[in-house]
Design a protein around this nucleic acid. Structure first.
Lengths: 220, 220
DNA sequence: CAGTATATCTCGAGT
DNA sequence: ACTCGAGGTATACTG
């Protein structure tokens, strides 16, 4: 990892064209060849960047050119180098996450009765031609139910579930298939759309589901 | 801007919980108080971060705690400081962009005849209850047409246009309203869905549109 | 390789 | 404060 603090101007030409007028900035050159240009605010997003794989050519005229295979170019014109240091970091062991959609899916699949007495799992990630349905199950009456799970339930998720339901209901072995939209939080617009389409909405309590799971584990 | 290279472990507790085992990393502390943790790969996304506004408390036990108003916490446990430097950068003049959807919309609105002879603009950003339609116009027959413009046309855009068309066609003053999905590039699946719904697809040539515009400007 | 869904998405505009 | 849409989205995963 190379850290350069420099007064520079930057031009990007690729999916769009963009220009940064001259100012002092941080330029990060990483071991994978990627380059990013940061201002002194905003944690997440660089002002400009080139994702790997890409190659950096350091011209003798203070002009750095970073290019990728698609022909996108990032040109950094150095006007004054204020700091320049390099550091060996090695490969990062990576992030361990918890609480995402995958975990909600596992937890709910393990406790279908959360949705109602007598509900039973058919399978998780039920495959269809347009992608896997998060959970396919049966309700107490034996009716097939497709469940779409999101952390935050928005309109896109309802559209997605609608497409799955259309497809599943064409299969005479499965039809009729009902829909359940399950999320930790469901946006009002998504709820309205879902209800309008006869899709039930369920708010999932992540901590409660996890608590149940913990209790289960304690039994063994 | 403060640059710290350190062997550290990191814990985030907020919208999810996440843990980074001990390894050498770059920690960026910016003038707005934001903090980000970078590995030696990937230009765009930090391993971990806290967006502003937030406050950093540097404990005496090598433990940094960054917290925001929502109670999200980023805890960095420093094990070995390998580099630590600070730099004054000042406020960045900011990015100048060109070529985004807004510009496509302007260009197309100025040259409706790109879509066919006799096509006329009604208005850009035509307001509806569920949001503005990019362009509302009339074709050569006088039929109302709603246009959705994207840089890259994917399924979401077709769904969005479909919702607009449903709504617009309920208005007897406008109905029947046809749909046109216009983008620099249209994904095959989006094209299939659009065609299936009777929506025409148009590929926009940004450079050609801009060229026409440049010619126009040259006349004055 | 392309297509799809996710993201601590971020960010900005509009209400 | 909230919602909605756009992003050079990036990134991971699946066929």
């Amino acid at each position: 990892m190379r850290l350069v603090i420099a007064r520079c101007s930057v031009d990007y030409a690729g999916r769009l064209t963009a220009h940064l007028p001259s100012a002092p900035r941080l330029i990060l050159v990483k071991a994978d060849g990627s380059v990013s240009v940061h201002a002194d605010d905003r944690a997440y997003k660089p002002l400009n960047w080139m994702s790997p794989p890409c190659t950096l050519k350091e011209g003798d005229d203070q002009r750095w050119t970073v290019e990728n295979k698609a022909g996108e170019k990032l040109i950094i014109t150095m006007e004054e180098i204020l700091h320049d240091s390099s550091h060996e970091l090695g490969v990062d062991p990576g992030l361990i996450k918890d609480g995402v959609e995958a975990h909600l899916q596992e937890l709910l699949a393990d406790r279908m009765e959360t949705l109602g007495e007598g509900w039973t799992l058919i399978r998780r990630e039920f495959p269809t031609a347009i992608g896997p349905v998060d959970i396919l199950c049966r309700d107490a009456d034996g009716t097939t139910v497709a469940i779409e799970i999101k952390r935050r339930g928005e309109i896109d998720g309802v559209e997605q579930l609608t497409r799955y339901l259309e497809l599943l209901n064409r299969d005479p072995h499965l039809a009729p298939v009902k829909g359940v939209f399950a999320a930790q939080e469901i946006k009002p617009q998504a709820r309205v759309l879902a209800t309008d389409r006869g899709i039930d909405c369920v708010t999932l309590d992540y901590n409660a589901l996890r608590g149940i799971e913990d209790d289960k584990l304690r039994l063994f």
